[in-house]
Design a protein around this nucleic acid. Sequence first.
DNA 1: TAGATTGTTAATCGATTAACAATC
DNA 2: TAGATTGTTAATCGATTAACAATC
Lengths: 210, 210
Amino acid sequence: MRKDKISNAVIRRLPRYCRNLAALRREGVERISSSALGKNMGLTASQIRQDLSCFGEFGQQGYGYNVDTLYQEIREILGLHRQRSAILVGAGNLGRALIRNFDFVDSGFRLEAAFDVRPELIGTEMHGVPVHDAAELGPYLETHAVAVAVLTLPPQSAQKTADLLMDKGIRGIWNFTNFDFEVGEEHAEVVVESMHFSDSLQVLSYLIRD
Amino acid sequence: MRKDKISNAVIRRLPRYCRNLAALRREGVERISSSALGKNMGLTASQIRQDLSCFGEFGQQGYGYNVDTLYQEIREILGLHRQRSAILVGAGNLGRALIRNFDFVDSGFRLEAAFDVRPELIGTEMHGVPVHDAAELGPYLETHAVAVAVLTLPPQSAQKTADLLMDKGIRGIWNFTNFDFEVGEEHAEVVVESMHFSDSLQVLSYLIRD
DNA sequence: TAGATTGTTAATCGATTAACAATC
DNA sequence: TAGATTGTTAATCGATTAACAATC
């Protein structure tokens, strides 16, 4: 039964379903049952059926799920076919690594431009992406419809840049600054996804304690 | 009341407590109540008191918590004072970004060495970290006590390298490969923390859907 | 002392798992 | 048809929130 409000727990499992189904597809697997997929992913068959039923009826009794169809359905649910526009702010080591290595298209985005304050970077191209002066960020956002900004600059600049992005109507911020900037009530609809590297490593530290 | 088995949900909030308390400390705040901290972090006062009570009694009725003490306590719980040994495998763009910019010490680790297959990198130093031939990884692990390996190499090499690391007795793997390698039953005690960039961006894609 | 705030117990809420009729 | 497996409802489990006596 389709649900209106999807829980966060379910949403965060969707990309994993995607990755696993993509792998099965590459291996040439045509169909899979919830119990086989569950074994693959370390989930119960029940949970998988429960998760998928939030979005529709993708399976068939006695058969299971068609791998390719289910893969496409979940990509559709996540909106990965959308090719929305993205920019990156802060073309330092990490920003550069993302520009060069990360497959934005596979996650539903086109990376249109990067911004940085360093004069030696401004005007260059990285992996086909033009690097503009950070001072041009505001004007750029007024003339281009940008859905998401990747924030890969030092934490000290995070709040100010985030404020500008939100004021100019950004929909989402992918935050790599390791700083949780404030989101004012007037921007409550802005979505922030933070990649807190240190949080992850600190959890790892805890989990390997003696 | 101290608990034996701490839930994953609680563990994953600990680094956030740490970050918030660190910020308060920097601002010179000396004490804080669970309700004030809750407002700060977007949690209920109840949850904070419940979380902390898993590990001991750190507060005082009528007063709240001493910011500095609580900060130190949580760092201790996470094991961030330990300075355990870490290595990094794959000194490409992302690996390089971590070596140069990431503060391993703040998360409880010393980054001792990096490994790569590229001849032009072998023998060099990055930010004081020596880059060795990836072929030396096995021998290195036999002569050095390494707690954690950072995996920043292409997904195609992930399984093979992870297998080697686990065979040589690694305690934890911080996985940036965007690939969930298999962990054999014989290595069930190995802890894997994965930073799946694409999962995060895909969730963001979902959350900004119309 | 009076007010504030803890740690803990009990209540509620939400997520996961189990069971099973429906049906391919 | 018989076996397999779904989608869904009900049961269980776990996490969050509320309430409150204890006490600084």
